[in-house]
Amino acid sequence: MHVYERMVTNMKKNTLLAVLALSAIGLAGCSFTGSEVPVSDTAGAPAVGGNTTDLGSAAGISSVRDESIITTAYAFLTGDDPAAVADEVEKRSKAAQGKIDGRSVYSDNDGKITSVSLTVRIPAAEIDSFLTGLDQIATVHSLSQNSTDVTLTVTDYEARISALESSIARFTALEKSAKTTQDLIEIESALADRQAQLEQLQSEMRYYSDQIALSTIQIDI
């Protein structure tokens, strides 16, 4: 064998040995002992000790969904007997499956009722007919209505709530497999943080759901 051929052969052998050595080092570095608990679950939950929160986003949610609209209105009415007008408004609100959320009565020095303010909650589907019927019980001097589209906000809340519920379920499963006290403390801390976020979002979602389902009408008589 020529000297050149021997040099090439030796170079190939050395290269192969180097690759095998690096592979062995890499495998050794990837192993972990049985006492270790992964800081993130396999489904993509954030690290236990990190600041990243797996909240998800509204991306990917179908754009084909009902709109979420909050409707409010204001009416100024006059009548010979403000208290009687207020009673009739309350009666009609209940007939429309609504309710009175607030009632303020104002009197003069003689105790005669001079004005009444009502906060009326009416199912969104009934608000138009309810407002139209106000002129049947009193003189309507002012009437305004406003609608706010909160569809994107509601969609985002739904996605974030769903993501948090999934994250909590995954960390709950990890909690059962914790091997050390430190692992358990970190997982419980992550769970408590996500649970607090979930409860806050659910509270805000209930508020939006209530405002969407029942329109709010402020009526001064």
Rank of each mutant, 00 (worst) to 15 (best):
K13C: 11
T15W: 07
T15M: 13
L17I: 15
L20A: 13
L20I: 15
L22R: 03
S23Q: 05
I25G: 12
I25N: 06
G26M: 14
G26L: 15
G26T: 15
G34F: 10
S35I: 12
V37E: 06
P38S: 10
S40W: 03
A43G: 05
G44F: 15
P46Q: 11
V48H: 01
G49N: 09
G50Y: 08
G50P: 06
N51I: 08
T52E: 15
T53G: 04
I61G: 04
V64Y: 02
V64H: 07
V64E: 12
T72W: 02
T72A: 07
A73Y: 05
Y74P: 00
Y74A: 07
A75E: 11
A75Y: 12
G79S: 10
G79F: 04
D80W: 00
D80F: 00
P82Y: 00
A83R: 06
A86Y: 06
A86K: 06
A86N: 02
E90N: 12
S93H: 07
A96N: 09
Q97F: 07
Q97W: 03
G98T: 04
D101Q: 13
D101K: 14
G102W: 04
S104P: 00
V105S: 05
V105K: 05
Y106C: 00
Y106K: 14
G111A: 01
G111M: 00
K112V: 11
I113W: 00
T114V: 14
S115F: 01
T119P: 02
P123E: 02
P123H: 02
E126C: 00
I127Q: 07
I127C: 01
D128W: 01
S129N: 13
L131E: 05
T132P: 00
T132F: 12
G133I: 03
L134A: 09
D135T: 15
Q136I: 06
I137N: 06
I137E: 06
H141N: 15
